[in-house]
Simulated scan of single mutants.
Amino acid sequence: MDRFDTMLAFTRVVELESFTKAAMSLNLPKTTVSAQVLALEKRLRVKLLHRTTRRISVTTDGAAYYERAIRLLNELEETEAALTQSTASAKGRLRVDVPTPLGRLVIIPALAEFFKRYPEIQLEIGCDDRPIDLLEEGVDCVIRVGNPQDASLVARRVGTMQFLLVAAPQYLNTYGRPMYPEALQHHQGVHFFSSKTGKIRPFMLTHAGTEQEIPAMRKLAINNGDAIVAAALAGLGISQLPAFMVQGYLTEGKLEKVLADFPAGSLPINALYPQNRHLSSKVRAFIEWVAELFEGCRLLQKTS
């Protein structure tokens, strides 16, 4: 039984406090992971884990071994990555999670180029924006919009989400076109709210040199960007949406910019991955490709 395999199995059980979760994250049967840890304890002649019917905890010897093992595993990956810089080294299963609009409109339409560049990667993409435990769910990295909240993850900036205030012509013809930010309080707003916190995102505009929250009548709040686009197209009110999601409708005249002279703000787009895992060649390949893809899209870059 390979020593590094048993070491990896043990560290994952410690991190997830579960043989079942560790097996899922490693894409192995639970019996295999259990056998690897037992073999490790037998070889070392020490008890590494306390096992009960309710929980698994690490022993003093196990904690000491974990600290050394995780360093060795990271050094091994770093050494291999340094010696295999060609694209051929980027291979194997890669699981990522991306926000649905970015996946649908930007990332997935460009995947033919990704697979042409990295033919040995088997990619699994989750299109979601929910909080994810990367280790527990076996996800290698996620793309997220906004400032990182989890200190256990490494963040790599890959782009910027620009926002615009928009509305359908039929709405503006009925209710008028606001000429200054304060006028929004007399208009119907279609807002985004977070499924996680329930918090409604206010309209933000740069006014008098500073970014300010601009009040509007909250006629409707929706927790999905595509649904907000549909509401805006239906003439239900003014919405603040990512520029890349609405540019096509602006070009077709189905939506119009509102208060275009007042910038509607932006949020960073980051690639996130666990900090206790060395960045593997396949994860590095995906992040570099996404950064390059977003760099080529002016709507996903910060405006001056």
Rank of each mutant, 00 (worst) to 15 (best):
Y249T: 04
L83T: 04
L16D: 01
R95G: 10
V33M: 01
N276I: 10
K282S: 10
S89I: 09
D128M: 11
S152F: 12
I125Y: 09
L255Y: 04
L184S: 01
V58Y: 07
Q36I: 04
L272A: 08
F294E: 00
E252H: 13
N270Q: 11
L72F: 15
A231P: 00
L105S: 06
I107P: 00
Y175Q: 09
D133T: 03
K302T: 01
S86A: 15
S25Q: 02
G176L: 09
K30R: 14
L250N: 09
Y249F: 12
P215A: 00
D5N: 15
A151F: 12
A35G: 02
E17P: 03
S280P: 03
D5I: 11
G237Q: 01
L165F: 09
F262C: 12
A81W: 15
L293C: 01
L76K: 14
D261N: 15
E78M: 15
R93A: 14
V96E: 03
K21F: 04
P99C: 06
G146I: 00
E80Q: 15
E15P: 04
Y249G: 05
L255N: 02
R3L: 15
Q162M: 03
A82V: 07
Q247P: 07
K219E: 07
H50R: 11
F192R: 07
N74P: 10
E120V: 12
A291S: 09
P169G: 02
M204H: 11
Q162H: 06
A291W: 07
S281D: 01
G265D: 03
L134S: 03
P274E: 07
I132P: 04
E211V: 08
M204F: 14
A232I: 08
H191T: 14
I132T: 08
A260V: 11
A82I: 10
F114A: 04
V106Y: 04
L153V: 10
N173H: 13
L272Q: 07
R43V: 09
S34I: 10
